[in-house]
Nucleic acid binder design. Sequence first.
DNA 1: AAGTGGTCTAGACCACGGG
DNA 2: CCGTGGTCTAGACCACTTG
Lengths: 242, 242
Amino acid sequence: MTKLSIEDLAAELIRKIEAGDIGNEQGKMPSERELLAIYPVSRYTLRQALNKLSKMGWIYQMQGRGSYIRFHNNQKPTIEQGDLGFNEDLTRGEKNIRTVKASKRLVKVSEALFLPSQKQFAKDQHFIEVQRFRTLDDKPYLIERSYYIPEIVGEISETMMEGSMFQALAEEKQLTVAFIDKFIQSKPLSQEQAAFFHLEEGMPALIVRDDSYLRNGELLAFSMIHYDYRMATLYMHKKLFV
Amino acid sequence: MTKLSIEDLAAELIRKIEAGDIGNEQGKMPSERELLAIYPVSRYTLRQALNKLSKMGWIYQMQGRGSYIRFHNNQKPTIEQGDLGFNEDLTRGEKNIRTVKASKRLVKVSEALFLPSQKQFAKDQHFIEVQRFRTLDDKPYLIERSYYIPEIVGEISETMMEGSMFQALAEEKQLTVAFIDKFIQSKPLSQEQAAFFHLEEGMPALIVRDDSYLRNGELLAFSMIHYDYRMATLYMHKKLFV
DNA sequence: AAGTGGTCTAGACCACGGG
DNA sequence: CCGTGGTCTAGACCACTTG
C-alpha cells in the first residue's frame, strides 16, 4: 500500500469490488471517512477515484446515504463477445478479433468515401486508406475503412494492420489518441459488404464513424466501421449531473 | 460576477466560447492563471469547469501548452435535426418532436417484449407499457416502447405522453434519472414498424435500449427506441485518459 | 442530531512543451 | 529556463438522508 494515485486507487477498488472483498451484504461501500482510514490519500484523491468508478458504472453515490455497488450479488451486465464498451467501463475480457483481409493504398482527398466532420483539407492532401475485414471468434464481424494522415503516421507496416492500429501507433510511434468524435448510424449493407457477413444486400449494418485526435488536437485518422448487426452491441453507461 | 459555482463557471465559459468572446485567433484559451485573475474562484473550481468543457468536447487541454478551443473558426460539428447528443455535449437547439400515436396499458412481466439487463422481477410484477410513435418536423422519426415500474411512477397521464416522459416525471413527481445503461444495436424492421417509417420490412433500424435508474439506484423504467435510420445519428465525444 | 456525500478554498509540487 | 496544465494535500462548510 505505497504511494496511491487516483488511478491506483480506482484500480484497487475495482479489484476489490470484483473479488467481493468490499461492501456489505446490501452492496453498501464503506463511507468516504472509513475509506480514508484505510487508504493513505486525501479526500480529493479518494473522491476522484470514486467518481471514476461511478462514471464507469461500478458504483453509484447518494448524498446522505453512501456509495453502493451495482451488481453486487447478481452478475455484471451480460456483456458478450462482440459487445463494445463505449466508455472505459464494465466491458472486460479478451476479444478474439482477427484480420482476415486487409488492403492499403494512398488516395487523394477526392477519392475518400467520407470525410471527417470538421477538418478542411488542401486539395493535394493525401490519406493512407486502410480497409480491413475482421472476424470475432472466426465469424465475420466487421468491415473497417480508415484514413490516416500520412504526415503524422508515416509508414504503416503490414504487421500493424493485423491487430489494433491505434495500439500499434501508440507503441511504435508514440502517437496517442486523446479524444474521439463518434457518430453512430445504421444503414443497409452494400452487396460487397453483405457478402462478407453472409447476409443479403440491404440488410442492416451498425455503423460507427470515428474521428480520432491526438493530444495536440491534430486529426490522426478518421474511420468507418460496419458491424454485423447480429453480433455487435454498443454498451454505454451514462451518469447524469456531473 | 457573483458567487460562481462550477456549473455557473462552465456555463459562462461555454457562452463566451460560443460568442467568440474568449480565446485568441488560434483558438487558445487564457491560461488557468489568467482565468483565475478574472473569475473569483479557486483553481479547483476552475479546473472542474474546464474539465467539464473538455468532456463535452468544447476544448482540449495540453499539459505544457494550454487549453484550446475546438471549432473556433469553423463551425461546430454539423449536428442536424434528428441527431442525438449522447453526452451533454455540443448538441443544442430545439428539436421539433411530436407524438402522433400513443398507447398505454398494464402488462405482466411475461408480457414484456424485453427486460432490463440486470433486474430480476417477481412473477406478479406489473409494468406500465407505453408505446409511442413520434415525428421530427412532422416526418416519422421513432417508435418507442417503454416499461415503467408502477410502484414508482404512479399514474401516467395522457398529457405526459405527449412530450418528454422523463422531463414530466421530474417536474411533476420529482423522479430524476441519475444514470442510464444504454445498449445500441441495429436490426431489421418488422412490417408494422416499417409501415410507420414508409420503409419496407427488413430495412435497418437504429435501436437504443435504455435502463434508467433513480438517484437511489432503483430502476425507474426500461425502454427500446427504433429510429428511422435515414434521420438518426448518435453523436458522442469521448475523452480518453480521464 | 449524526453521518453521509457534494462543493469549495488555498496552497504545494510535479510533468510536459517550447524557447 | 519558464509557463503551462496535472496531481495531490489539508481543511472547511454545505446539503441531504436517516433515526
